[in-house]
Nucleic acid binder design. Structure first.
Lengths: 339, 339
DNA sequence: CCACTTTACGCAACCGCTTTACTAGCCAAA
DNA sequence: TTTGGCTAGTAAAGCGGTTGCGTAAAGTGG
């Protein structure tokens, strides 16, 4: 049975219930109170006809699509996938559908996503990005409504934003290494211009300063949040003379690269090098050793993201900025330094 | 600028171009050929007014939503995420949106997904499942149109299906172990009633038979496609007396569990136990050692899945069954057995 | 020059729901 | 008796497209 085939309409319900379509519509949308008897007749008609409102008509009439868009750089990234699942879950509860769109960091596709918003495919958009904006996105965004930024900032954009406590998390990660006895701790982090990477670096510096340790700038490397960069940066560090005994990685992907580099030199984690990551990707505990890392409240991020967007759509005024706490997850990639 | 705010309509375009809306509509949908001059007037009006058709109106008028649904058990599973990305990519090219819905294997949510199809939220549905159906889903599905089954079968359902060569892949995996010198090869696979697991087991038996090796039924374990089951099953095997020198795992998740079990007994992969997985999950090469496994053509599965669904929607007759080839990916989890 | 075919469009109904503006009927208070 | 205020609805105009019929004007063959 295909939609539209022999679906009954609100009009048929009205006729059978001996009222007008207006009444049925109002009744169904709780915009009127009817005497029990009338209501019962309508209910009966609905059941008898197996009536379900034609959502396409409803949308046109209301001018709303009852769908939101979700733009991620890469849906195949487990972090985004988990986030997406949470958003979808929450959206469903409120009668919204979710249109995914992974841009692969492609400007064209990002604009395509925005066009869908403009063209009314969706009522709002949850945006995620993973690379610094040159300002062009920020400039464009002003022309659109109902946008929420999640996880990563696009500076200069005036929309509600939801981030995690990057700085606090980085501080906790670094402090954990310090408390385990490490003094020489390197940091291999994300893009120097990327919001989250900046915050994480700051947190690292906080903790080092707090412990009274001077940071050698050669122990800080910034690049992509990727495994390849992690490997390359670590190899470079390992090629130096005075080696760190621990590394705080700006992401779990970077951490994996670091592990590879360490191993390739015949060293091992955590015996020779302790390692803390960031993100708690689903694979973090599949690794050997399990990766000690900072867990982001992914699902929470998604839920709150949707809630914020919905508030926007409903003309409420959600908070401009929400920060979500992170937590240190201890596994087996950290040990005391060899004395 | 919000959708609906001050968007111009087809009528305004018509007036400005001094034609009727009918003509504009037909022109835009290539249902009419107009003299160059008229066409130019319409084009000019469209540009001048920045006109873009109201998709909500179009959908109502056409009775189509120009969206498809995609139902996965778990979008956070990287395999599904990759598949989803491919589907979305292909759908976008054809002007379709994709509504994701991850059911978590929950019957309620599966039915919710189907309801969306019935209610016209979407024009078609790509279904994935990961557990045996008791027949109830199969029974329900007959009432719906435009459904394509992907990756995993629901027996008794009469819709186009797209699977990978499970049996052939399992055969290749097992043969690879045999060729590396193994004779005693265990198989820890998925649910005994699940289509893919059955096929993979058959492929394993094929290869063993082909090599003239008798299979001891105690070397075959069936359970969930999960890490936990893999670990438990492997521990059980390791607790026995005559140990296999290699294991063919029904999925990469199972393989990870196996690795853990092997390690927990002080043994190692591949020195003591060789291991081949199935799926080539993105994390397969993050592991140490890298997991030799069978790669599924995930993106292809998504692309063909969408193509097949679109054919269905367009009243074409897509093939009832499509099989996609798989390939052995050699990494470092297989070695010759100790002599 | 007439009948006939194209060419180039237009009229108006329709998709199914929402919503504004209005009313018929009844009761109570002045 | 009139005025006013409920209660329980209704009629009809959208929302912005698509499309089955039609038709006037121009071209064409005989």
């Amino acid at each position: 049975m295909l939609a539209g085939a022999d679906m009954s309409t609100i009009n048929e319900v009205a006729i059978m219930a001996r009222v007008s379509t207006t009444t049925v519509s109002r009744y169904l949308n709780n915009r009127i109170e009817l005497p029990a008897e009338t209501a019962a007749r309508i209910d009966a008609a609905i059941v008898a006809l197996d009536y379900r409102p034609n959502i396409l008509a409803k949308r046109l009439s209301l001018g709303r699509s009852e769908a939101i868009g979700m733009m991620t750089p890469e849906i195949a990234n487990p972090f985004f996938a988990e986030l997406a699942a949470a958003v979808e879950d929450e959206a469903e509860k409120h009668g919204y559908s979710v249109l995914m769109s992974s841009t692969g960091g492609n400007r064209e596709r990002e604009l395509g996503s925005l066009r869908r918003l403009k063209d009314g495919h969706v009522d709002g958009l949850i945006m995620m990005t993973n690379r610094p904006d040159d300002g062009s996105l920020a400039a464009t965004l002003h022309h659109y409504g109902h946008i929420v930024l999640i996880d990563e900032d696009i500076p200069g954009v005036n929309v509600p934003k939801i981030f995690v406590e990057n700085r606090e998390g980085a501080r906790a990660a670094t402090r954990h290494l310090v408390e385990t006895g490490h003094r020489r701790i390197a940091h291999i982090g994300g893009p120097a211009k990327l919001f989250s990477a900046i915050e994480r670096l700051a947190g690292y510096r906080d903790a080092m300063a707090g412990a009274g340790i001077r940071v050698d700038d050669g122990d800080i490397r910034q690049g992509e949040y990727s495994r390849d960069f992690g490997r390359a940066a670590m190899l470079d560090i390992l090629a130096g003379d005075r080696l760190p005994t621990a590394v705080f990685a700006g992401s779990d992907f970077i951490a994996i690269g670091i592990m590879e580099a360490v191993r390739s030199k015949g060293l091992s984690v955590p015996q020779d090098i302790s390692l803390v990551g960031f993100d708690d990707m689903p694979f973090a505990d599949l690794l050997a050793p399990g990766l000690t890392t900072i867990r982001q409240p992914t699902a929470e991020l998604g839920r709150i993201g949707f809630g914020t967007l919905k508030a926007l759509i409903d003309k409420a005024s959600p908070p401009e900025l929400t920060r979500l706490p992170v937590a240190l997850v201890k596994r087996n990639s950290v040990a005391s330094p060899r004395s």
